[in-house]
């Protein structure tokens, strides 16, 4: 869906993006991860030509982005910013309607689409006649997302979309994000420096440093098969938490007991796609609980408690070092 080939960006004598190439498949969520100044935001903004590449080519949906006008390109790409950039002098409804109006949609269509999005993003329709300053930060960010999705673009670019939110709001919004129906079929490129966020939201992570791609892969690949010391060091803090988040129950399936160890009062059912972290959170709800994990396709069941979960993790780690 999106393809970057040998893209370079220079600002004067500084090389911000140094010959990077990658592809994003349709429907994939790709996260550009790195510290400040690694070139991730510059890369993102070259995709919708807010910044023009110094050399190399970029194509979206098979078309070279230089072949159409920047305005037409951007009307077909949703763009969400860190500080949302909502028009302060437009109501929420008017804000959401911006791109559809640029595309000259009929009024009724715009109205229906707005109501639809507001519902999908869990905003009250009462907000539509309000102005951005009357909403909380979290609500504003949802509106920003609704606005980006209004014309139903196939591609969504997000630049640190949750960076301006407080930690509590951020964690709940991030969780919600992964479940939103509206985003299910979109190709998303998201920029962040927050590892937690990257792991929760991304199918693929592109770890960048000094304008180059250091490693590309799924979260588990970066954690358990780091390609160099930079990658190792990058994930060294809060490593346990990351690992528990990255490893899913299905990854440790074959190490889990098929029978319950003890007959306990409480068993909570769950599926194999949860991460170990989520599994621990469920166990934490009540004392003396164990998990009954049901495979969604085969119907097989396994059991898990604290011990088996950590044992499974250790096994994965050992396996990766061989």
């Amino acid at each position: 869906m999106i393809s970057l080939n040998n893209v370079v960006k220079k600002f004067g004598n500084t090389i911000a993006v140094d010959d990077i190439s990658f592809n994003v498949s349709e429907g994939e969520n790709m996260v550009l991860l790195g510290t400040s100044g690694c070139g991730k935001t510059t890369t993102l903004r070259m995709i919708n030509r807010l910044i023009e590449a110094s050399s190399g080519s970029i194509s979206v949906a098979g078309e070279n982005i230089k072949d159409i006008s920047p305005e037409d390109l951007r009307k077909n790409i949703g763009y969400v910013l860190q500080y949302n950039g909502l028009f302060p002098h437009y109501t929420i409804a008017e804000n959401i309607a911006i791109v559809p109006e640029l595309l000259k949609w009929p009024k009724q269509k715009i109205k229906n689409r707005t109501l639809d999005l507001v519902e999908q993003l869990h905003l009250s329709s009462n907000f539509l006649s309000l102005y951005p300053h009357q909403l909380s930060g979290g609500q504003q960010q949802r509106v920003g997302l609704a606005r980006a999705l209004a014309a139903d673009p196939p591609v969504l670019l997000m630049d640190e979309p949750f960076g301006a939110l407080d930690a509590i709001t951020r964690s709940s919004v991030t969780k919600e994000f992964s479940t939103l129906q509206a985003l299910k079929n979109k190709t998303i490129v998201l920029v962040t420096h927050d590892i937690q966020e990257a792991f929760e939201m991304g199918d693929t992570i592109l770890l960048m440093d000094k304008g180059k791609i250091v490693q590309k892969g799924r979260p588990v690949d970066l954690l358990f098969h780091p390609q160099n010391n930079f990658v190792v060091d990058f994930f060294s803090s809060k490593k346990m938490q990351l690992e528990l988040n990255a490893v899913l129950l299905k990854d440790i399936w074959y190490g889990l007991p098929a029978l319950q160890r003890r007959v306990l009062e409480n068993t909570i059912e769950t599926d194999e796609n949860k991460s170990l972290w989520e599994a621990l959170e469920i166990l934490n709800v009540k004392k003396d609980t164990s998990l009954l994990i049901k495979d969604s396709s085969s119907g097989e069941t396994r059991f898990a408690g604290y011990d088996s979960l950590f044992a499974g993790l250790e096994a994965i780690k050992q396996f990766s070092h061989e």
Binding site: N48, L50, P70, E71, D72, L73, R74, K75, N76, Y79, L81, N84, G85, L86, F87, I98, V99, L102, G144, R147, L157
Partner: peptide, 8 residues
């Protein structure tokens, strides 16, 4: 920037 990004 958001206005530019939306295609204005």
């Amino acid at each position: 920037e958001s206005a530019r990004g939306m295609g204005m």
